[in-house]
Nucleic acid binder design. Sequence first.
DNA 1: ATCAAGTCTGAAACTTGTTCTAGATTAGCG
DNA 2: CGCTAATCTAGAACAAGTTTCAGACTTGAT
Lengths: 205, 205
Amino acid sequence: MPAEASTSRPASPLTERQEARRRRILRASAQLAGRGGFDAVQMREVAESSQVALGTLYRYFPSKVHLLVATMQDQLEHLHGTLRRKPPAGDTAAQRVAETLMRAFRALQREPHLADAMVRALTFADRSVSPEVDQVSRQTTAIILEAMGLADPTPEQLSAVRVIEHTWHSVLITWLSGRASIAQVKTDIETVCRLIDPPEPTRRA
Amino acid sequence: MPAEASTSRPASPLTERQEARRRRILRASAQLAGRGGFDAVQMREVAESSQVALGTLYRYFPSKVHLLVATMQDQLEHLHGTLRRKPPAGDTAAQRVAETLMRAFRALQREPHLADAMVRALTFADRSVSPEVDQVSRQTTAIILEAMGLADPTPEQLSAVRVIEHTWHSVLITWLSGRASIAQVKTDIETVCRLIDPPEPTRRA
DNA sequence: ATCAAGTCTGAAACTTGTTCTAGATTAGCG
DNA sequence: CGCTAATCTAGAACAAGTTTCAGACTTGAT
């Protein structure tokens, strides 16, 4: 039913000034997150920094987690755009997916605080944020399927993709909290990507 | 180097009354969590319910997340004990691990609110909780390796185990926030466990 | 038994997410 | 243009995690 240009489902179309406010808020959020991570995104500061009253901020984003998940949607779109311009070049689907994820990972490494804010929000989100989190998940799935070069996947492949996403989120968390090295992140991503390639005979590393 | 009876590293031995306090606190925490999940575990209530001053609660557990992660350690020990008594019976390592995780999952299904509190705390934990989270991770790894019947795993196997843990945590989160069905949980666990069994022909458990 | 050091208590204070309110502003419409 | 409903603003108020403090209680060593 929905499907606008891309992401949102604007119940009411949003005037120009409203669109501008929304954008200012998201920019402020990403900016603050880029400094101190999740904790540094304080609702009063976001409001002030985006020149909007606190109440208005809450009208646009009903909670801090909603705000950060929306910020993530925003960033994901950028990423998706970038990836479309330069698709991964590996030979096998597994390689391409691993390459894609590692590329995303390097992007996050440049902004670890922002990554922290977004990922923590994503996994901390409760049911009230499900639609938004789901949207992020769909977008991620799309990116992975694209890297695989797969139009309509089988249920098994979908499960593998979900497992890859699970691993992606969790390994990020683990890295962000300093419990995994970058090498481990790489290894684990490559490991999980093994699920993609044919489990049947005829295969080599 | 360390390794006491099991879990903790008591810098100072803890008197009997202190041990009792600690236990009361953990019981109260699990109890409240069992009702309303993460949000229902309110520090003032935990303090009151365990007959301890708020300041004391914070001396034992320096934050709500520390408290809940400790609660999880506690529960994991129970689980490990139970599993030791009735080890999984599958033919292959993958089957046994999947069976083990599904058994754990069914246990969590019986206490979804408690699961919510523990898992959310675990993934929300920041660096200040790393040691405790790591301890949980080690315990989980031990459980999985035991199910595999593996004494000293190769680095590849360790990576596979980590990926399984990642999937386990993330799929739980997804289920708890209502974005995945129980069937999906099962499927995804089985999918990730495929990483265990021989990618080559010729191998036994 | 006594003293010092460390621990516990109760209560208040502080922080930050979230909600509420009353009054301005704006948008859409006749 | 003039009206009405919706939106926005400033700011107070509330909730729950966390910190702080003065005083009472325990503990361990002498």
